[in-house]
C-alpha cells in the first residue's frame, strides 16, 4: 500500500496564488478592496472635495469668471434675503412632505407588518416595491397629466359636485394657484407620492419587530386596543418613522425636477443649485448651495441616530 502525500503537489500558478492567499489573508483582502475603494475614493470623495473647494471660490461680478482663491464671500451670499427664502421654503416643504408621507404610510406599513399573510404579504411587498423602482420621471409625468387644469382631478371633482371645493382650495393664498399643476399644493402632492415607498419600508421593518407577546401582555394588563396602539405600538414604531423621514426629508431637499415641472416657479435648494451652475454660470454659489443640504442632513442624522433610527434601517 502506497501512502499518498497529505499535501497535493502544486499544479500551476492558480495553486501557488491560493497558497499565498492562505498564508497572507490580508493580501487577498487588499486585492478585493483595492479597485472599489480607489473608485469610490477618487471619483466620489474626490468630487465631494472639489465641491467643497469650489464653494470657497467666488465669481467676479463684472467678468463672470470664477476667481480661484479662497474666500468666504460666496457663503455670505447664502444669507441674502432671497437665498434665505429659498432655504426656508425648502425646509418647510421637506417637513410637510415628511409628515404627509408618515400619515399615509402608516396604515399600509401597519397592515403589511401585522395582518398580511401569505399571498397578501407578497402583494403588499410588490405593491410598495414596484412604485419605488419604476421610473421617477414617468411618475412625475403621470402627475402632470392628473393635475392639469383640463385633467382627471378637475373632471372627477366636477362630476361628483366637488368642483366648488376644488376651486375654494385653489383660491387659498400660499398653497393655491391657477390649477393644481401650478400650485404649491400640487408640488406637495407629487413629492408625497414619489417618496412614499421610502417611508413605508423602514416603518414596516420597525413594526415587524414589535413582538406580539408584548401586545398580548398589554391586553392582559387591561389596555384597550387604542391604548395598546398609543402606548406600545407607536413608541416602538418611532425609530422606523425617523428612519423613513431621513429619506423623505433628504430626497425632497435635493430634488429639482418636481418643483420645475409642477407648481409655481418658486425656487427650492435643488433648483437653485441647478440654475446657478447652468444658466447663471455661477459655479461657486451653486456649490455653496449644495453644501447646505449636506450640513442639514448631518445634523438630522445625528439626531436620528440618537433616536435609534439606524437600528430600524
Amino acid at each position: 500500500m502506497t501512502a499518498s502525500p497529505a499535501i497535493l503537489p502544486e499544479r500551476g500558478p492558480g495553486d501557488r496564488l491560493t497558497a499565498l492567499f492562505w498564508r497572507r489573508p490580508r493580501l487577498l483582502l487588499a486585492l478585493l478592496l483595492g479597485p472599489p475603494l480607489i473608485w469610490l475614493g477618487v471619483v466620489y470623495l474626490g468630487s465631494l472635495l472639489a465641491l467643497l473647494l469650489q464653494s470657497f471660490y467666488s465669481i467676479d461680478e463684472f467678468s463672470g469668471v470664477v476667481k480661484e482663491e479662497f474666500t468666504l464671500k460666496t457663503y455670505a451670499e447664502l444669507f441674502r434675503a432671497q437665498n434665505l427664502d429659498i432655504i426656508l421654503r425648502t425646509l418647510l416643504m421637506s417637513a410637510a412632505v415628511t409628515l404627509g408621507c408618515a400619515i399615509i404610510a402608516f396604515p399600509i406599513a401597519y397592515y403589511a407588518a401585522r395582518f398580511a399573510k401569505g399571498r397578501w404579504k407578497a402583494v403588499f411587498y410588490l405593491g410598495v416595491m414596484l412604485p419605488l423602482w419604476s421610473s421617477y420621471l414617468v411618475k412625475v409625468y403621470a402627475w402632470k397629466l392628473i393635475l392639469a387644469k383640463e385633467g382627471i382631478v378637475t373632471w372627477v371633482a366636477e362630476h361628483i359636485g366637488a368642483g366648488v371645493i376644488l376651486n375654494a382650495v385653489l383660491a387659498l393664498p400660499g398653497i393655491g394657484g391657477n390649477s393644481l399643476s401650478t400650485a404649491p399644493l400640487g408640488t406637495f402632492l407629487v413629492f408625497v407620492y414619489v417618496w412614499l415607498p421610502y417611508m413605508i419600508l423602514p416603518m414596516q421593518a420597525a413594526l415587524e419587530r414589535v413582538p406580539t407577546t408584548m401586545l398580548e401582555a398589554s391586553a392582559d394588563l387591561g389596555a384597550s386596543r387604542s391604548q395598546t396602539f398609543r402606548t406600545v405600538i407607536l413608541p416602538l414604531a418611532l425609530p422606523g418613522v425617523v428612519a423613513g423621514s431621513i429619506f423623505t426629508f433628504s430626497l425632497t431637499m435635493g430634488d429639482y425636477i418636481i418643483p420645475q415641472i409642477i407648481g409655481t416657479s418658486a425656487r427650492f435648494i435643488g433648483l437653485a443649485v441647478y440654475q446657478f451652475q447652468g444658466t447663471a454660470g455661477n459655479l461657486p454659489l451653486a456649490a455653496a448651495f449644495a453644501v447646505v443640504p449636506i450640513v442639514i442632513m448631518l445634523v438630522y442624522l445625528a439626531i436620528a441616530k440618537r433616536m435609534g433610527a439606524f437600528d430600524a434601517l
Binding site: 468630487s47 472639489a50 465641491l51 469650489q54 433628504s250 435643488g270 443649485v273 459655479l283 449644495a290 443640504p293
Partner: peptide, 16 residues
C-alpha cells in the same frame, strides 16, 4: 445623499 449633491460634486470636479 440627494442626487443633486452627487451631480454637483461631479460637475465641480470636472470643472476643477
Amino acid at each position: 445623499l440627494p442626487g443633486v449633491i452627487t451631480g454637483m460634486a461631479l460637475r465641480s470636479a470636472f470643472s476643477v
